[in-house]
Write a protein that binds this DNA or RNA. Structure first.
Length: 963
RNA sequence: GCGUCGGUAGCUCAGUGGCAGAGCCCUCGGCCGAUAACCGAGAGGUCCUUGGUCCGAUUCCAAGUCGACGCACCA
């Protein structure tokens, strides 16, 4: 027989002890808080409860009187179910608002919906037909309203399910009469401030919408277009030659290049750059052509000829030269413009003021006609040469053929370039000059004022500032009129002859607002000019347009506040500046800009103090989530399986400043992290069963050293978490929180605490000390997680011990005041880094013993530590309680001089060195606390217990000071 | 084409002009009084690439590259 190893001996002893049940007198954890979260099932129940107890109202009532935090919810468009992007956005907002409450603010969350506009019209058209077919405009609008309401209900359900705590029963809707009316009042202020002007200029026009589009509704996509070089014959060959310094008068053509042949009917001029050099060149079969010198070579290559340059002239010298339009019966002048470049083409630019902004601008300078031959239906007007009655999309072909026939077509190619498209229809837009109403960027200094305000706003991340500043600096006037039905009317009267606004427009708008607020939009649409203007009616027309929907949502800073908080307006009837706007980064040119412009135009100030943006969701390969790729993960699906809290934790854990990655894999990881946090809370709760903080709480000065240390580190963490929340850096909150649960609590504090909690008498100061600290930790922790893990926080909150008012929700709380002692700690703060470092070193040595099968549990081991200096001092300070720190059965420290040769040396990161001697102990195992102690068996009444347990069971109880 | 931001372990993210960090994941082990839990150990990195400044660069600078986004082009 071989001798038994220490371990085998120990195991035999274990078997004997199992005969007696020592669990009873132990204080084992107990709680109603389940380990299994079952979020998918339980969250809906909790939601029902929140709704029944009117949680939002409760929280707001509890916050009343605190400093106001005014958050403006960017309204999602009321069409379609919410997708992951919506979920991320709304959840981030919820976290911001909840965190603001923790900081002691009265933070309202009034959700909003954007209800007017084309997409809803299109849906209704699909179902009920176009206006004028089966139903009139008023009935059409009623259907739109109905449709929007249905969509809102669906979206609202999904948002609620995410645990977003908001005033869901009283949202702001841009189609509420109160909102619509206030929007008209906003318009009145903007008109009053002189920003609204009429213009007849090219705007983005969608042939499918039959309407102008805002900048934000335009997206650029690649498109194939015919690229043609067209020769315009010089009307006076002698004049041309003279300008090039030549004597003869040979026919010549001026070559332009364009990718939109259909705009040629509107051609009014050829633009040249005044400072560029132009040449008159012999170009093979094409004869003499004029084009920019810098492009002669590439053009000649394109035409397959070798050029023979005859003469040169500056662009400026060509001004006023006349050329014959290739198919219309008119001559057009050469004009000068800075917009001409050598990037492509010929350096001579076909100029159609009705179809291009540059063209319009330069044309204005030369007094060219803004002659728009394209009707609202996309067909050329009668009388247009060559293409009258033809649709724009079919015109290219006809025109090219005609050019070819007349010999004006020098070259034809197909190019792929990026081209503006309608973001709804995904079809190519055209530029079309129509009479429209604009918010002028410069007439009254709106642009410069807006740029100033950008500088006064906090942009998170910071690069957003540069982005929006450039956009505002470069954007054209804002076209606010739309030729649609479903929208807030541009409720103004226009003078028939002068085409100017009625001089009383602001006052009239207020009157319209009054009526709209009471009777709805039909009060305007159903009215006649005479109803408003009486005797003047004959001189004015009612503007039939609606307002750009971006004007609707852009007015939310005022309208949302008014429709929910009318009593809190200032003396001028103005809403306070919002503390934050929070949307996806695409809104720089969308809502952030439209809000800025309306706010500055009406009151000279930005609508927000801070603007936070987040990126878009992508899959594991970094591809944008989209329906067409089929790589999307629906938030509804996640709620139904893993639970909304897991989704929320994912949102929190992601650094949203860039793209936000989601995959099944990732969710699994997050679910693991969730469980870890949940179990940590569970352990805390389960050891607080029966603990009444008022009765059992230990004053902070009397807490054991490690408990005071635990409170100190919790406070440090709380400071960090508070900072991270204030910066909306939720991913840092998550990391710190998770790390804390894993490392500080699970890996150290709670592990060490078990002995004291389980084995000391239930009401002993030592156990109560631990519970006091744990109580404060969980009180703090439940608040830390509340903005993120809202369901779980509420669940914990309801199980926390101690008296708390039955109505006060965790969401109405501010940070927990972690008690701080004024008396010096039992172990000086400087000792902890040493103790922690030694503990790490000891773990490695114990693992070594474990691998060699000397021990299993750390309680099978005994330690002897050798050190000097601060390391020795730290260890000696804990003295006889060291074994509880290391969770070994015995641990002692001795001066370095006594160190045996076989002790393991460990250099400590904070400085100092410790030598560790560890071995399996031969002592018997106490049946109760499982420590192996030489005094097990010495007590006749309790032969299986160690002295400490005997003391704890039948004596006064052991005393602990440190661990 | 221009601009902005970013590239650190398989993943999510910290961090720093001076030996590269955490957690998760993974592997191995322990415990069996947090048990569909808990504890420990280990493996895992050219800190995107190339130059430059510096005693020393993952960090600062420049160029490049990849990715995201924005702007422009769109005549």
């Amino acid at each position: 027989m071989s001798t038994l190893t220490d371990r085998e001996v120990n195991q035999e002893a274990d078997v004997k002890d199992q005969a007696v049940d020592y669990k009873k007198p132990l204080n084992l954890p107990q709680t109603a808080f389940p380990m299994q979260a079952n979020l998918a099932q339980r969250e809906p129940q909790m939601l029902a409860r929140w709704e029944a107890e009117k949680l939002y109202e409760q929280v707001q009532a509890a916050s009343r009187g605190r400093k106001l935090y005014w958050f403006v919810d960017g309204p999602p468009y009321a069409n379609g179910d919410i997708h992951l992007g919506h979920a991320v956005n709304k959840t981030l907002k919820d976290m911001v608002v909840k965190a603001a409450r923790l900081d002691g603010h009265d933070a309202a969350f009034v959700p909003g919906w954007d209800c007017h506009g084309l997409p809803i019209e299109l849906q209704v058209e699909k179902k009920h037909g176009k206006v004028g077919q089966k139903l009139d405009a008023a009935a059409f609008r009623a259907k739109c309203r109905e449709y929007a309401l249905q969509q809102i209900d669906r979206q609202r359900q999904d948002f609620k399910r995410l645990g977003v705590l908001a005033d869901w029963e009283r949202p702001y809707l841009t189609m509420q009469p109160a909102y619509e009316a206030e929007q008209l009042r906003v318009l009145a202020r903007i008109v009053e401030n002189g920003h609204v002007v009429r213009g007849f200029k090219p705007v983005h026009w969608c042939l499918d919408c039959g309407s102008s589009l805002a900048e934000a509704e335009v997206e650029y996509q690649d498109k194939q277009s015919p690229a043609i070089d067209v020769s315009f014959a010089a009307a006076d060959a002698a004049d041309l030659s003279r300008r090039f310094g030549l004597g003869d008068a040979v026919p010549a053509g001026l070559v332009i290049w364009t990718t939109t042949p259909w705009t040629l009917p509107a051609n009014q001029a050829i633009s040249a750059h005044p400072d560029l050099d132009y040449v008159l060149a012999e170009m093979g079969p094409w004869g003499r052509l004029v084009l920019a010198e810098g492009l002669v070579e590439t053009a000649a290559q394109r035409y397959g000829v070798s050029p023979n340059i005859l003469a040169r002239a500056k662009g400026a010298a060509l001004e006023g030269l006349r050329a014959r339009h290739p198919f219309a019966d008119r001559q057009v002048p050469v004009i000068l413009g800075e917009h001409v470049t050598l990037d492509a083409g010929t350096g001579l630019v076909h100029t159609a003021p009705a179809h291009g902004v540059d063209d319009y601008v330069v044309g204005k300078k030369y007094g060219l006609a803004v002659d728009n031959p394209v009707g609202a239906d996309g067909k050329f007007l009668p009388g247009t040469p060559l293409v009258a009655g033809l649709h724009v999309r079919k015109a290219d072909e006809v025109i090219i053929e005609a050019l070819r026939g007349s010999g004006a077509l020098v070259h034809l190619a197909t190019i792929t370039h990026s081209y503006p498209h309608c973001w709804r229809h995904k079809t190519p837009l055209i530029f079309r000059a129509t009479p429209q109403w604009f918010v002028s960027m410069d007439d009254r200094g709106l642009r410069s004022r807006a740029v100033d305000e950008i500088g006064r706003t906090r942009w998170i991340p910071g690069w957003g500032e540069e982005r929006i500043r450039e956009m505002v600096a470069g954007r054209p006037d804002w076209c606010i009129s739309r030729q649609r039905y479903w929208g807030v009317p541009l409720a103004v009267f226009v003078h028939r002859q002068a085409q100017t606004l009625h001089p009383q427009t602001p006052a009239l708008l207020l009157r319209v607002a009054e009526r709209v607020e009471k009777e709805g939009l039909e009060a305007w649409f159903g009215s006649s000019v005479g109803d408003w203007l009486g005797g003047e009616a004959g001189e004015y027309d009612k503007c039939p347009d609606t307002l750009d929907v971006w004007f609707d949502s852009g007015s939310a800073h005022q309208c949302a506040f008014v429709s929910t908080n009318p009593q809190a307006l200032d003396a001028d009837g103005l809403a306070p500046q919002a503390d934050m706007y929070l949307e996806g980064s695409d809104q720089h040119r969308g809502w952030f800009m439209s809000s800025l412009l309306t706010s500055v135009a009406m009151r000279g100030r930005a609508p927000y103090k801070a603007v936070l943006t987040h990126g878009f969701t992508v899959d594991e390969q970094g591809r944008k989530m989209s329906k067409s790729l089929g790589n999307g993960i629906e938030p509804q699906q996640i709620s139904k399986t893993l639970g909304a809290d897991v989704l929320r934790l994912w949102v929190a854990a992601s650094d949203y400043s860039g793209e936000i990655t989601l995959s099944e894999n990732l969710l699994k990881r997050i679910a693991d992290a969730y469980r870890r946090i949940r179990n940590t809370a569970r352990f805390l709760l389960s050891n607080l069963e029966g603990f009444d903080p008022a009765r059992d709480g230990v004053p902070v000065d009397q807490l054991l050293a490690i408990d005071r240390w635990a409170l100190d580190s919790a406070r440090r963490l709380q400071d960090e978490i508070g900072l991270a929340y204030r910066d909306a850096q939720f991913h840092l909150v998550y990391q710190k929180l998770h790390n804390y649960c894993v490392v500080d609590l699970g890996g150290l504090y709670l592990d060490v605490l078990k002995d004291r909690l389980y084995t000391m008498p239930e009401r002993s100061p030592g156990r109560r000390s631990a519970q006091t600290a744990m109580f404060h930790v969980v009180e703090a922790l439940v608040r830390w997680i509340a903005p993120i893990l809202s369901f779980t926080a509420d669940e914990i909150w309801r199980l926390l011990p101690g008296e708390r008012s039955g109505t006060a929700s965790v969401f109405a709380q501010t940070w927990h005041a972690l008690p701080q002692s004024k008396s010096p700690p039992p172990i000086v703060d400087a000792h902890w880094p040493q103790l922690l470092a030694v503990r790490e070193a000891v773990k490695k040595v114990l693992e070594d013993l474990r691998v060699r099968e000397q021990i299993g549990s750390a309680l099978d081991a005994e330690l002897k530590l050798y050190a000097e200096g601060p390391t020795f001092d730290a260890l000696a300070a804990v003295g006889p309680e060291l074994r509880f720190w290391f969770i070994t059965s015995e641990a002692a420290v001795a001066p370095l001089s006594q160190r045996p040769a076989d002790a393991v040396e460990a250099v400590l990161p904070p400085g100092g060195t410790v030598w560790i001697s560890a071995q399996a102990t031969g002592a018997g195992k106490c049946g109760r606390c499982w420590h192996r102690r030489p005094d097990v068996g010495l007590h006749s009444a309790h032969p299986l217990l160690c002295g400490r347990c005997v003391e704890n069971i039948s004596g006064a109880g052991e005393r602990r000071l440190y661990i």
